[in-house]
């Protein structure tokens, strides 16, 4: 091994020697495609059960859930904000204006400093999708999902989820991602720990309260237009 080589070259040389794969002959993508994946890809639940499963999971996580038809969304948001007993909220810059009920104090995030976000009592965001199997809400941090810090510092997170965004399995979510997203947060219930005597405690650092509004928009049954072998 060349003593003058950089740590990088040395590391790669050690790794190559260990795998006996000269750089030229490595074709990861080729053998990657042949890896066996016999696990369940698409779920088999009808739309209604899929959504019911998502709601059940959320409730198991102690998240609060409210349902509403699409046209009632702004009013439902306002009602939930009121019911939360909170007054000062932050919102991502891309959140629809009609969701920001005027009776509350809103700060819209245009590079708000962390200290100001910290002062807010709650935050309202949308999400990229939700995975029923594990009860996971996925944020890709688009303009209406907000920067990562926005859904982290306030103690109360109200997340707007449309029924059409609910998939059943984790692989279904990944098949929705044409490109790997740059930033992702998967949220499966409120912040929690079991570090002291295995006692589960809710709310360590993240928001202690997760509230989901499920918007009952029309849902196509994604399993119906799949090949039978995919839909097992």
């Amino acid at each position: 091994m060349n003593a003058a080589a950089s740590p990088r070259q040395q590391a790669l040389e050690r790794i190559r020697a260990a795998t006996r794969n000269p750089a030229a002959s490595v074709e990861p993508a080729g053998s990657y495609a042949s890896l066996r994946r016999d696990y369940i890809g698409h779920g088999a639940l009808p739309a209604e059960s899929r959504i019911a499963l998502m709601l059940e999971r959320l409730r198991e996580y102690d998240a609060e859930v409210t349902e509403c038809p699409p046209e009632a969304l702004p009013a439902t948001i306002a009602a939930q904000l009121l019911a939360s007993g909170r007054h000062a909220f932050v919102a991502p810059a891309g959140l629809p204006q009609e969701w920001l009920a005027p009776q509350f104090a809103w700060k819209v995030d245009r590079d708000l400093p962390a200290a100001e976000i910290e002062q807010a009592e709650g935050v309202v965001t949308t999400c990229f999708c939700a995975i029923a199997d594990s009860g996971t809400i996925v944020l890709h941090h688009s303009a209406s999902e907000g920067r990562r810090v926005l859904s982290l510092l306030p103690d109360w997170h109200l997340c707007i989820l449309r029924a059409s965004q609910v998939v059943e399995t984790l692989p279904e979510y990944f098949s929705l991602c044409k490109q790997p997203p740059r930033l992702v947060t998967w949220i499966s219930g409120p912040s929690a720990t079991a570090d002291i005597e295995m006692t589960r405690i809710k709310g360590v650092h993240g928001p202690r309260f997760l509230h989901v509004i499920l918007v009952r928009d029309p849902v196509a049954d994604p399993t119906s237009n799949l090949q039978p072998d995919q839909a097992r």
Binding site: H141, P181, R182, L183, W186, I187, S188, A192
Partner: peptide, 21 residues
């Protein structure tokens, strides 16, 4: 690891993102 269907939080980031993190 913990006997949960999914851990409460998983984060993924890619290099640096202007304005976020």
């Amino acid at each position: 690891a913990t006997g949960e269907r999914m851990n409460p939080y998983t984060s993924l980031w890619t290099g640096v993102t202007p304005g976020d993190g």
